[in-house]
Every structure is written in C-alpha cells, then in structure tokens.
Design a protein around this nucleic acid. Structure first.
Length: 484
RNA sequence: GGCCCCGUCGUCUAGUGGCCUAGGACUCUGGCUUCUCAAGCCAGCUACGAGGGUUCGAAUCCCUUCGGGGCUGCCA
C-alpha cells in the first residue's frame, strides 16, 4: 500500500495572509483532499519579533472562512504536534546538537560585522558572496581564544562538496552545485532556530510527503535536503517538492503585503465570496483542463493534480475575480444570499435586524442578484428601502428638478393615486398608460424621473418592483416631495 | 556579478510533432434585448519574445539570444 500523502501549509504570519499565501494553501488543501491524504497546518513563528499571536489568530480565522480545513494543526491537534514552531524549540536544539556531534554542523564564531566585511570583499573581487568556511575546522586553541574574547557561536551546517539533484514535480529535474550553496546557519547564538533548520526538521517529523510551496523557496531546497540527509533520511525517503509559480501584481511586480489589495481580509470586507476567491485563485497557475472555469470546491478537489499546475508566474486580475464572484452570487439560493448579505447591511446600519426588515430584504434580493459583483453592493442597492427620505447626488438632483421631470412625476402621481392593488404589474401598466401613451414619452424618459424620485438615483433595481417593495404610501410620498 | 526558475491574445489559460488558417475565459469594442444599471445573447479586436537548427511537418524537440523573476541573510 502506498504511503498516505501528507501536505502542509506553513506560513510565517508576519501580517495578514495574502493572495499568494492563500493560493499556496488552496493547492496544498486541494492536493491533500484529491489524494485522500492529510493537510497539516503549521505556524512558522521562529522569528517571534515579526510573528504575533494576533496574526496567527487571523491566519487561522481566514483559512476557516475560506473552507480550507486542515487535519492536523492549531485547534485540531494531531499526533505530531505541537504545530507552532515556537513550541518546538527543544526539538530543534536536540537536532542541532546531533548535527554538531556527527560533524555535519560546526560552531561558527564569526561576527556579523566580520561576515559582512568578507562578503563585501568577495563582491569586490567578483566572487560569489557566501560563507567562506572560515570556522569549518578550528583548532581547540582557536576555539579557546574566541571563547576568551566572549564570542558566542552560531551553529552552521556544513555543505559537502558535490551537488544536490532533485525532481521538482512542476519543474522537472533541478541541480544545484554545492559551490554555489554556502554553509548556512541553523541556530543563532542564543539557541533560537532558523527557518532552514525548523522547516526541514518539522517536515521530517510530521511525515510530510509533498511540499507544495512558493517558487521563492526553490533555491533553498538544497539546504533543506542537506538537513534531511543529516537527519538520516535516505534518498527515497525524501519528500517530493513542487514549487508553485508566483502570483504577481497587475504591474508585474511580486504581490506583497505592502500593497493593500493583497490582504484576504480586504476581499472579505468587499464582499468576495470564499468560493469565488478559491475558484479564481485556483485558476492562477492551474487549470481544469477543459473549457470549464467556473467550478465548485468539490470539482476542484476532484480535478486537482500537480501535473496540471503551470510553471510560469500569473498576474492577479481583479476584473476576472469580480466576474467569477458575480457568477457565484447569481448561483446562490435566496436563503444563502440573504445569509451572506445580511452582515453587510447590518454593518452599514441599513437595517437593524428586525424581522420585518429582513422580510423586505428577502423579497428585494431576487431583483438585485444579477446586478452586483461584490456583496458589499447590496448596501447602496437596498438602502433606499430603509431610509425616510432619499438623498440625491448632484446629477440626479439636477435631473429630477427639470421642468419636464416634474411634469412626468406629477402625471405619475395622478396615475398611481387611484391604484387599489399595489403590485409591480399594476404599477407598470398604470405608468405606461399615463406616461408612454398619455404623454407620448419614450420609456427611458418616462421612467427615469420616477426612478430618481423613488430610489434617489438613476441607477437602481427595476423600478416597478422597487415601488412595490417600498409600498404605496412611501412611494407616493417620495413622488410628492420631488415635485414640491 | 553568480546560481536557479520562467516566456502562447491586454490578463488567466488550452495546447506534450500533424486535429492549430492556435481553442476557452476575463477585459475591451460593436450589436441585439431593454424602465436605468446589470444580466443574457451575437459578433469583433488581439498571441506562440527573437534567431538558428532537427523533421515531410514545430507553439510543441535542441541550441543561441533577448526579456522577466527569484535566490545570493544569524528573514521566511
């Protein structure tokens, strides 16, 4: 029986999770689900000056919101925990010591200043900058001298001569000659581990079989493999690597958290649905293969394979995300739509949450469902139903105040005042009769002024349905006030 | 500079030697529909970075070149 596939998503939450992080998490998740394997969620917080508990909590929350459930990790536990690296420090220390004892690593007494100076010299003489191996084989006398100077050593991994060769699942065979991979630091003088140590140790201990991660980590792979080897893993026990292409900004620069639009929290506030974000992100670097792009999470799981992941970087396109989001919104049942729309209406205080209000919203949703691309848009779309008086923007105000408009609205008032049944059908036929037949107006010119008077804007949901929802009394009041 | 990765419409992509006078989606443009805005439908614009090979035949294989990106940290 083949061993169970285990992937991991291991962010370092130095800020809110962003688009690139989530795309990686999505692929990790989809691959684990597709293969019936496990997804491990691990927090890489070895740099506690930059990673805060607040960011960790937000990362957990974001993943849950997107529906990317993990099998092992924070909150759910698992047999290979803990899943916060800051709680695993003794493990890293133990391995670093082992490496030291076995001669795979050595104490390095060079100071940051000395290293920097030597790197400068290397650059100046056109050599590849990197650790020069100065402390690789210190004599006991040299060590005593350094210690006497009060120096505290870091632990540095020894890269042997030769090369590292591995098959990236996305890019094929990749070779790094070790002369371009200098000895690297595993542990600081204060005993805190570095990423290179912690990531490799954890992937081994957590029995990760497939490492899907950003392509920026591609050139650190030889170092990671070196740690595996020092831990005693045989070549056929190494995890498989798949380096995902970047998600770039529209301007072709790498997306970064410096840019406000990358934070997933922002997309949530704007009203992008989690399934739309996942669907769109899945298309960045992967494709279902046929011409169907609008897929469900279930379909993504069924179709996702690493073979179909691209190797070239993708640009993030807000327009396409919006289009997919609109499609997802239109696919919602009214109950689902209501559940998702309500938080936006409550937050902007369009409604207070009373039963009667929610009933109005429920009735109004069908007529705006195909008119919005972001959930947030329900707010401007429905606000007119819940205010006492509409307010006009400059353009609408000018339009409604024209003499022709006042005449149209007056005529509409006469036509509507006698209506006993206030339904959109009745309203429509009464207005058509009075304005189009009666005044000989084109529909556009006839209904425009009425629309502005009733909804406050020349852009609104369908007029007759809107008036029905508003009710006769309030509709008439708005018309009256517009001609006053 | 060195090492590594990448290169099909504006964007995301399909394409693994003939089905490609390169398909789909988003955007954009025009039209239809129409009470506004949308949605929907139809049509259109636009691409294999360049140059050499290999082959009867190349977007697909090879080489060179150009361009973009990453790494080159006691960040991850």
């Amino acid at each position: 029986m083949a061993r169970e596939i285990r992937t991991r998503f291991a962010p370092s939450p130095t800020g809110d999770l962003h688009v690139g992080n989530i795309r990686t998490a999505l692929f990790d998740w989809a691959y684990a689900r597709h293969t019936g394997g496990k997804l491990i969620f691990r927090i890489e917080d070895t740099d506690r000056e930059r990673v805060t508990d607040e960011y960790i909590a937000r990362a957990i929350e974001t993943l849950k919101w997107l529906g990317l459930e993990w099998d092992e990790g924070p909150e759910v536990g698992g047999e290979f925990g803990p899943y916060l690296q800051s709680q695993r420090l003794d493990i890293y220390t133990k391995w670093a010591k082992t490496f030291l004892e076995n001669g795979d690593a050595y104490n390095c007494y060079c100071s940051t200043e000395e290293l920097e100076a030597r790197r400068e010299a290397q650059r100046a003489s056109n050599q590849a900058p990197g650790y020069d191996g100065k402390c690789r084989s210190l004599t006991p006398e040299e060590v005593s001298k350094f210690l006497a100077e009060g120096r505290k050593p870091v632990i540095r991994m020894r890269m042997p001569d030769g090369e590292t060769r591995f098959t990236d699942l996305i890019r094929g065979e990749v070779v790094f000659e070790h002369k371009y991979v200098p000895d690297f630091v595993l542990m600081r003088a204060d005993g805190s581990p570095l990423y290179t140590l912690a990531v490799a140790v954890d992937d081994v201990l957590m029995k990760v079989t497939h490492i899907l991660r950003g392509e920026d980590l591609l050139s650190s792979t030889p170092r990671q493999i070196r740690v595996y080897q020092a831990m005693g893993l045989a070549t056929d026990e190494l995890p498989a690597f798949a380096h995902l292409p970047f998600v770039m900004g529209t301007d072709n620069t790498k997306l970064s958290k410096r840019n406000g639009e990358v934070s997933i929290a922002w997309y949530r506030e704007e009203g992008f649905l989690p399934e739309a974000i996942c669907n769109y992100l899945a298309l960045l670097g992967w494709s279902p293969g046929d011409d169907k792009e609008n897929i469900t999470m279930k379909e993504l799981v069924e179709l996702f394979t690493i073979e179909r992941v691209n190797s070239s970087p993708a640009r993030f396109d807000m327009k396409k995300l919006e289009a997919i989001n609109g499609d997802k919104i239109r696919a919602l049942t009214i109950d689902e739509f209501l559940t998702r729309a309500l938080p936006f209406l409550l937050k902007e205080q369009v409604v207070k949450g009373e039963e009667s209000e929610i009933e109005v919203v429920r009735k109004a949703l069908p007529i705006i469902q195909e008119r919005i691309a972001r959930m947030k848009e329900v707010v401007p779309m429905l606000r007119f139903l819940f205010v006492n008086e509409v307010t006009f923007d400059d353009e609408s105000a000018a339009k409604v105040n024209e003499a022709d408009s006042k005449k149209v609205i007056s005529t509409a008032i006469e036509a509507l005042s006698g209506l006993s049944l206030w339904s959109h059908g009745e309203i429509e036929s009464a207005l058509r009769k009075a304005l189009i037949e009666g005044l000989g107006l084109k529909p556009r010119n006839a209904f425009g002024p009425v629309r502005i008077a009733v909804t406050g804007s020349h852009i609104s949901p369908p007029l007759f349905e809107s008036m029905e929802l508003l009710g006769k009394e309030r509709s008439m009041a708005r018309l009256e006030s517009a001609v006053r």
